[in-house]
Amino acid sequence: MIKYMIQLLFMSILLTVFACRKRSTDSALSPRIVIAEPGIGDTIDVSVNPELHIEFTASSDKGLHALEVIFVRNNTDTLLHENPSVMDLKAYPYHEHYLLSATSSIESYQLHIRAEDHDGAVSEEMVPIFAQP
């Protein structure tokens, strides 16, 4: 009986040890959004090349929960509103080409990116750009 108890105790200790997890020291970190293009304040010459290249990566060690990409013209017209499926991914590469319509004057645009991880931490990035005829 004592032998059985010792075995049980030994197994319990082993289970306890293997159940331990190193606690993350960066629990306060929000998801990371790194934008390759466009750069803040970039000006697109629509008559030369109307294509806007949007490329960024959202990442989180906790795992991403949601991602929202909004592209707005003159703070009023929503041209693009996407919610890519990122559930449980640790990183998500976003890569799209958007064709800007012809313009007669300089117009302002805003790229808004919002990422949320599984802990509810949120990161946001706002990139203003301009388009000229």
Binding site: V34, T57, S59, P93
Partner: peptide, 9 residues
Amino acid sequence: FDALDDGLM
């Protein structure tokens, strides 16, 4: 297949 370099995929 999801390695990052300076935060970019």
